[in-house]
Write a protein that binds this DNA or RNA. Structure first.
Length: 280
DNA sequence: CATAGCTCCTGACCGC
DNA sequence: TGCGGTCAGGAGCTAT
């Protein structure tokens, strides 16, 4: 399930190959979460610019000639089961039943494979105009933005009475942590996932922000997590899952205290935690 | 504004 | 081997 690390790894892996490529054709499979929002032929002839990431979205700029100052582009989301693959011209392969978007270029094909089709590819005339701007509007700060300090993060928790786990998933205090990394960050910060967000002290909020950064950074370095569907664009598995200390480890011993890891449900999602090591 | 619940989708897994 | 039920979950949407 792609969270920020998987999306960032994807960005890093496709940016080199696809940069400056010229779009030759577009192939669409089954409908994704939203319609493309333009005629596919509108993309043909465009040149791909540097791939950006914001939260769990990727932005693929498509320049006009001459280059526009604020280029149009494609906003991509991998949903739950999506993955991009890069197929060099020499490695072209026919689309399978879960391949729902192919951007065929003179250098190769960028392909979105997404069995569950929660993912999206949306055309926008710019990153800062609808529909892209609307989709990005509610996102909180990037975790590695130096401007995001402990006090600012703590301030984002004020007035939020929901459990801290769900506030993390909401992405308004900081983007990027989905279910796996939220569980892992809370464990590393030794905070009970059920703790009301606005009852977390500044000190502990700072510790949590550090833990989020540590976990996400480590996951990017390890190529993300491969649990079911995720592979990087060259077909490689991520290796973070072996570093998970609580996620998916119900009943197994806590790495700190050896008591069994517990599972509970918050907002219809599994939360894994150690009730001894993690406190409100 | 904050919050809770619903919803999209299909592969994997489980018990019978 | 087949079948129905359950689970997984990102995040926008709706209702309160």
């Amino acid at each position: 399930m792609p969270e920020l690390p998987e999306v960032e790894v994807t960005r890093q892996r496709i940016d080199g190959p696809v940069r400056d490529a010229r779009v030759l054709a577009v192939r669409m499979g089954k409908p994704l979460r939203w319609p493309l929002g333009c005629e596919p032929s509108l993309l043909v002839g465009r040149r791909v610019g540097p791939v950006l990431r914001r939260g769990k979205y990727l932005w693929l700029p498509l320049d006009e000639v001459p280059a526009a100052s604020s280029p149009a582009g494609l906003l991509l989301h991998l949903g739950m089961s999506g993955a991009l693959s890069w197929l060099p011209v020499a490695a072209a392969s026919p689309a399978g039943p879960h391949d729902h978007f192919d951007l065929q270029t003179d250098r190769g094909t960028l392909r979105l494979t997404d069995p569950r089709r929660f993912g999206a590819v949306v055309y926008s005339a710019g990153l800062h105009v609808p529909p892209a701007s609307n989709l990005l509007a509610r996102l909180g700060p990037e975790p590695f933005d130096a401007a995001l300090t402990g006090p600012i993060f703590h301030a984002h928790l004020q007035g939020r009475r929901s459990p801290i786990k769900q506030v993390l998933l909401g992405g308004q205090a900081v983007v990027g942590a989905g279910n796996i990394y939220a569980c892992e960050a809370l464990f590393r910060a030794r905070i009970d996932p059920r703790a009301p967000a606005d009852r977390i002290s500044l000190t502990r909020a700072q510790r949590l922000l550090e833990a989020v950064r540590e976990v996400l950074g480590q996951a990017v370095a390890l190529g993300g997590s491969t649990l079911r569907d995720f592979h990087d664009p060259h077909g490689m598995d991520g290796r973070f899952q072996a570093s998970a200390q609580v996620y998916g480890r119900e009943g197994q011993p806590c790495v700190h205290c050896a008591r069994p890891v517990k599972r509970l449900v918050q907002g219809q999602r599994s939360t894994f935690h150690c009730s001894h090591c993690q406190r409100r």
